[in-house]
């Protein structure tokens, strides 16, 4: 016997059960975020395991994502790159449905 509930919204369900492996802490995310955004801007391979862990963390941690996005914007501006394009690249990289850019 259970009380009927209105269903949780699909995007909330997605975020509740998000796969955020491989594990990375917020402190490690802060430690790595500068090299991570530069690897996105340079499209350099660097350490793929590290990049996967960063992407997983940013998927699951809105605060770190909000901060990483700004570091990316600033670094893009320094390079004369388009910050908006860089942000789209970041979103695609951390997209849980595809994980396309390995």
């Amino acid at each position: 016997m259970s009380t009927p509930h209105t269903p949780l919204e699909p995007d909330v369900v997605t975020r509740l059960i998000l796969d955020t492996d491989p594990w990375l802490s917020c402190d490690d995310c802060f430690r790595l975020v500068d090299t991570y955004v530069e690897s996105l801007l340079d499209d350099a391979g660097r350490d793929l395991a590290e990049r996967d862990a960063m992407s997983a963390h940013l998927r699951g941690c809105p605060a770190c994502l909000e901060e990483a996005a700004t570091v990316l914007v600033l670094a893009a501006e320094d390079r004369g790159s388009d910050p908006e394009a860089a942000l789209v690249h970041l979103e695609r990289t951390i997209d849980p449905s595809g994980r396309p850019e390995r």
Binding site: D34, E38, T70
Partner: peptide, 16 residues
């Protein structure tokens, strides 16, 4: 990373 990118993250963290 560039020193500037490394530096940004401190300001961004504290501002956020």
């Amino acid at each position: 990373s560039r020193f500037t990118t490394w530096a940004y993250k401190f300001a961004v963290l504290h501002a956020a």
